[in-house]
Design a protein around this nucleic acid. Sequence first.
DNA 1: CGGCTTTGACCTGCGC
DNA 2: GCGCAGGTCAAAGCCG
Length: 210
Amino acid sequence: MSYWDDNSMEMISSWNSPEMSDCDETSLQDSAHRHCCSLQIRSLTLFHRKYEVSNMFGAKRTRKDERVILRMECEEDNPDDGFQWRKYGRKTVSGNSNPRSYYKCTFAGCKVKKHVERGADDVNLLVTTYDGKHNHPTPTGRSSTRSGPRNRSGFSVSQRFRGLPSSSPACQYCTSSLKPQLYMTGHSKLPSFPVYHNHARLYRGVQWDQ
DNA sequence: CGGCTTTGACCTGCGC
DNA sequence: GCGCAGGTCAAAGCCG
């Protein structure tokens, strides 16, 4: 890998196990697979890389300390990453007919935000951008006074699969070579380009299994 | 009733 | 300085 720090080491070791697959319709119906995927998304939140790469798009935007962009295939609009988010906005951005949703971490005092959007040419491609650094550990469960999970959009698979063990058995679907791909980190604001599945490889700062 | 999403309006930063 | 686009706010409505 061309970059290195303690945090990234933690992230890399987390990502290498277990395998992440492309979440096709069939595999997403398997609860073990969905839980497996959610664990790996959670691992990504441990990754905080210092700003160190140039902005290849030439955009001159205000820097923020931490930004991580995750690209993956998933049908969930808001897949579980281990934290609880509250949706505060939704916007259609130029170049992408799919709206972008904005979320804030609901933990008291935590100012981490993220936004999620679908790929312009592939609705199964989910691009999640994290802004900031959590100042609290990953909650063990969703803090909610409600007795049961809700079905409305924005709630994660973890609520539905909370009963699964934290170390789920090997996932039968997680054998694909396609992994969720972190393709840009440390940039302040997203350049206004549509997220095309076939072109994302050009923009990634980090590519898995290279 | 509390906490959530939705959604239009507003704010702000950047490019020209 | 202006216009555009991204990001945020907040009221209204929904749901358990």
